[in-house]
Amino acid sequence: MEGALVTLRLFIAGLGLGVVLGIPLAFGQIYGNKLIRGLIAVYERVLRSIPLLVILFLLYYGLPLLGIRFPPMVAAILGLGLRSSAYQSQIFRGAILSISESQLKAALSLGMTGIQAFFHIILPQAIRIAIPPFANEAAIVLKDTSLAYALGVIELLRQGYYVMTNTAEPLAVFVAIGAIYFVMTVSINTGLARVEKGLKIPGIGVEEGIG
């Protein structure tokens, strides 16, 4: 199934772009000055408040009027990635801020630099805290790759549509499409849950049955 591969490519590139942009955005929100924080807040508010389909249409049909033209695949990845970065920056920001101020002070008082404290103390904990909400976001991005359909990208859904027009078996085709999305989403969530479990440390993240 080539369509499934295109879907995976959209997913990985979109989510990856979200990570690459989301982390600096989270940093900017926490450590930036007023202007940077304000700009990021606007960016986030906008991307989180308009439907992804509208974002995709803006990128694909709107930007050419300003002389910026993307192939459908690139526009789809950009749309997925930009929107995801807005959500992911919230995830990373929350995870970093959830680590107590006194741990940072303790790290500095040992003679660590700010950068050392971030990499040795804050980041290892923030990653663990961010995994569950990140898994959630990953599932959303995967499913939303289907909106690339509207730009003419031949991903899983559109390919299914072609198969249906050839076979006239809509029920069978869309059940199969649904099943493929289902398997992909569940595998991603299971994989990340396994990572979470592997990194688990008592007292960090969501506890099971500890009072």
Binding site: K105, A106, L108, G111, I121, P124
Partner: peptide
């Protein structure tokens, strides 16, 4: 700072 130890009211232990 390496030469000045600091013990905090709320411990400041690294949870991980």
């Amino acid at each position: 700072r390496q030469e000045i130890g600091f013990v905090f009211q709320d411990f400041g232990l690294f949870d991980h």
